[in-house]
C-alpha cells in the first residue's frame, strides 16, 4: 500500500518530496514570522526613521546640519552633562556594588538569598516613585536634610542640591548598585577555594591574592557590569524628569522636550540627530560588552 501511495504521488506532481519539503521549510520559518514582524514594526522601522531623519533637512534633502547642531553649543553641552552623569554614576555603582557583592558572597545562607532577590527587584525599580522617595529624603525639605541641619550640617548651604547632576548620581545608585551586585555575585562565587589555598600556600598576602588572582579573573565580569550600568544610566529619563522637571539639560530630556513641542522652527529633525547620537553611544557600550563577554568565555574555558 505504501508503494502505491508513493507511486501515485510521483505521477501527480513533478517532484513531490521536494515540494513538500519546501512547504515544510516555509512553515518552519513561518513560526517566527510574527515575532520578526512585531520587532520590524515597533523597533526596526522607528529606528530607521530616526536614522534617516537625522540626515534630512526640513524639505527632505540630505544634510549634515542636524548633526552639526546636535554636537555643538547647548546640545553638545547636554551630551557632556549626560556623560558626566553616567560616568560618575557608573564609577560609584561599580565600586560599591563590587564591594557589596564580595561581602554578600562571603556570607552564608539566608542573607545572601535575601540580597539576591531584593537586588533583582531594585534593579528593576527606578522610575518616578524613586525620585519622590529621594525628594522626601534629601530634597529641600527632606527628612535627612532636616535631621542633618538640626545637627548643624546644612547641605544646601554647602552647594549640594538633589536637583543637580550630583543629586541624580546619588539617586541612580538605588537601581545601579543592585545591577552590579547581580552581575558580580555569580563570578565571585565561582572563585574556587583551591585558588585561595594555592596562593596562600605560595606565601601570597590576602591583598596580593586579590591583586594577582581575584581581580584578573573577575575583570571581564567587572567590565560587562560597567558597560551595562553606563548604558542604563545614560538612557535613564523618568527619574531625572520627575526630579528636575526637565530643567537639567540631559540628552534624553532634550529629546523629550523636542518631542513635546518645545521646538524652534527649522529644528524638526534635531531630535532625530540627538537620538542617533544616543544610539551610537549605547551601541559603542554594547560593543565593549560583547567583546568583554567573548573574552570572559575564553577565560572560563
Amino acid at each position: 500500500m505504501v508503494t502505491t501511495l508513493t507511486r501515485s504521488r510521483e505521477e501527480g506532481l513533478p517532484s513531490p518530496p521536494l515540494v513538500a519539503h519546501k512547504r515544510r521549510e516555509v512553515r518552519r520559518y513561518g513560526g517566527v514570522l510574527p515575532y520578526l514582524l512585531f520587532l520590524l514594526i515597533f523597533l526596526i522601522i522607528p529606528a530607521i526613521s530616526v536614522l534617516i531623519g537625522a540626515f534630512e533637512s526640513n524639505n527632505g534633502t540630505l544634510t549634515l546640519s542636524n548633526l552639526r547642531l546636535a554636537f555643538s553649543g547647548p546640545y553638545l553641552h547636554s551630551f557632556v552633562a549626560s556623560f558626566e552623569l553616567s560616568a560618575g554614576s557608573t564609577i560609584i555603582a561599580v565600586v560599591v556594588g563590587f564591594l557589596a557583592a564580595l561581602a554578600v558572597a562571603a556570607t552564608k545562607g539566608r542573607p545572601r538569598a535575601l540580597v539576591q532577590s531584593s537586588s533583582s527587584v531594585l534593579a528593576n525599580t527606578g522610575g518616578v516613585p524613586l525620585a519622590f522617595a529621594f525628594i522626601a529624603t534629601l530634597g529641600n525639605f527632606g527628612i535627612v536634610t532636616k535631621i542633618l541641619s538640626d545637627m548643624g550640617i546644612n547641605l544646601y548651604a554647602h552647594g549640594f542640591s538633589l536637583y543637580s547632576v550630583i543629586g541624580l548620581i546619588i539617586v541612580y545608585q538605588y537601581f545601579l548598585i543592585p545591577v552590579m551586585i547581580l552581575v558580580m555575585l555569580g563570578p565571585i562565587q565561582n572563585i574556587r577555594s583551591a585558588w585561595v589555598e594555592a596562593a596562600r600556600s605560595l606565601g601570597a598576602s590576602k591583598l596580593r591574592f586579590w591583586w594577582s588572582v581575584g581581580l584578573p579573573i573577575l575583570t571581564p565580569a567587572i567590565l560587562s557590569g560597567t558597560v551595562v550600568i553606563f548604558a542604563d544610566a545614560f538612557a535613564a529619563y523618568a527619574t531625572a524628569e520627575a526630579l528636575t522637571s526637565g530643567t537639567l539639560p540631559l540628552v534624553p530630556i532634550q529629546i523629550g522636550s523636542l518631542i513635546s513641542g518645545n521646538v524652534a522652527a527649522g529644528q524638526a529633525n534635531l531630535g532625530n540627530a540627538l537620538g542617533l547620537g544616543m544610539i551610537i553611544v549605547v551601541a559603542l557600550a554594547a560593543t565593549v560588552y560583547v567583546l568583554s563577554q567573548r573574552k570572559a568565555s575564553r577565560w572560563l574555558r
Binding site: 523597533l43 522607528p46 544616543m278
Partner: peptide, 23 residues
C-alpha cells in the same frame, strides 16, 4: 531570535518614541 530580544536595551525609550512618531 535571542540576539534580537536584547536589541531594545540598546535603543533608549525616548528614541523609540521619536522613531514611532516619525515613522
Amino acid at each position: 531570535i535571542d540576539a534580537l530580544s536584547i536589541v531594545p536595551l540598546g535603543v533608549p525609550s525616548v528614541v523609540v518614541v521619536l522613531g514611532i512618531l516619525g515613522a
